[in-house]
Design a protein around this nucleic acid. Sequence first.
DNA 1: GTTCGGCCTG
DNA 2: CAGGCCGAAC
Length: 633
Amino acid sequence: MPTWEGPDRQVASSRARPPTARPLHTTPGAARDRAGDLFCSPVMDSPTDLFDDSAPQMQTFSPTHSSTDLPGVHPQPSAGRPAPAFRPSGFPLIHHLLQPGGAPRRIGGQLNTNLSTRRHLEDRNLEEDRGERNGQVELGMGGGEEGVMKEEDSLLGVKKRHSDATLVAEWSQDILKVKRMKLESRPRDGEAEEGGRRREGGREGKRKEREELKEQLEEARERLQALQEKVWRAFGENHMAEGEEKTRRCGNRGGDGGERDAGMMEEEDVTEGMYDEEDIDGGEMEKETFSLLSVSPFDNFHKQREERQKDRGERGSGGGLHLEGVMEGAGLWLDCGGLVRGDWHGGIEDEGEEGGQKFAQALKLELGSAVARVIDRVLRLYTEMTDVTSSSPPAAISFLPADAGNDEGREKGAWMGLLTRGTDEEKIRGKVEKTGRQDGEREQHLLKRSNGSALPPRTEASDLAMPLAEGLSPCHLKKAKLMFFYARYPSSNTLKTYFPDVKFNRCVTSQMIKWFSNFREFFYIQMERFARQAVREALTRDGAPRLGRESQMRVGRDTELYRILNMHYNKSNVYQVPERFIEVSEVALREFYSAIWTGRDTDPCWKKGIYKIICKLDSPVPDAFRLPGCPVG
DNA sequence: GTTCGGCCTG
DNA sequence: CAGGCCGAAC
């Protein structure tokens, strides 16, 4: 508790120094200080006249507004609001991991690789098909597999250049299996000759086979759904939905002195890279993506599946659609993985209906399970990376998405989860502990740079070559204001630590330091203003000493002062003002009150002592702020 | 000389 | 909120 002087002493002091007798401030050029002096001058008898219209008239700290009355309070989105059609936060995460290299800016290039690989595979398939039609089916399993193996070698040869060889290997195995099944589903040598009889005799067997396949498909479907649920739980789908609109708004701030978020540019770049590819059906890919990873994943998933089934039913297009649900999602990854769309159509078109259906089902099964494996792998990778980043799991998110950067939608999945609830973090922490993976070298590296904190000063953004913002954006400003709740006097190093997505230079550093200077200025002005008013009320209300003055020297959440501070630093009112900030505000208020009451404000440097007290009250900024980008909309 | 905080002004 | 300016600290 700072130098709070009891009411008795204050009154004695005030009596000894009547307001009208107080000298004007000598603080050089302090206009606002002069305003404060005027309030004590004979000319101005009401301090509130000098301040803005938000100043309380009677009770300085009266609860004139509750937080819910604040104009800045945004209503929570209704639970039943339809999911907007946007790229969901989680998409790039999955998508990114599906790209073997995983480097954010390489999406286009990887698609190129995948596409060329795919085209290569398709060309090979066409050759195969032509060969089969020319009676060269003798390839059979052996020859066909050899061909497939060659393709596999080729595919691996391309993909081994990328980092995640394991994931590539899995995909390659998937491709291999699919091709095997395709070949198996085709008539073999001699089968064409006695095809009729064999079909006759094997009809019962095939029926059983179909039944078995159906069961397997159902299993795969269930497994995929369970895995998807895991994904959604891990990434907090609800938070992705929340504030997406706001996030968009933040991203759409338009020309702001060229301060486009790097993330915005990144997203566009990636999008361009994706859709420039000739064979990619961008719209379909996005649609499928949304169906798999949109805001209400399962609602949309099933709804879209039903709609599509209905649609296809109306069009009369048959085909083994039992796995439609699985394939709704898998379709995306087929494209992302550079897989075998050509094979799919070729298989159906080139074979009889029954063989085509069988192949289609087999393919769906295989791909469905491949998707399931990929999701598992994604989750494993996620927990591993989470492990590396130690105590801030969502930070991993910052470098997982292909177009991570400042894509505010995704950040908002991460941020909202961090700022509003701890359950997800705890859940992931538990998962991390179970994983128990320790990368000693990297841990050491991170710790070396972390100044003792659990997190590195510069997050993965810089480690993974995420493009840094050249300038400061409105989102950075918002974040800085929220940081002010914890740190009134952050050092430039601290700022660099908590703005990992900003490329710091002298100008940017100065600007951010200036921001905090301005924040402090506003803070101290409010403290002085309310302190002066409290002093005035103490003197004028009944002209007598009043007990319980301490209780008025508080900045509870129901007070006008709190409302003003909250409006300034937390305009959207999304962030919960930390209790510590309220305590610091009360200290400052009481210091100002004490200084004014005792007449210390006659000293030109009377505020310096208060500054010195307040600067010692900085508290650590939560690790959540180490995430790049904007914490709240 | 540089950095940073504070004050004043627009 | 930013720019200019000044002074203190290193």
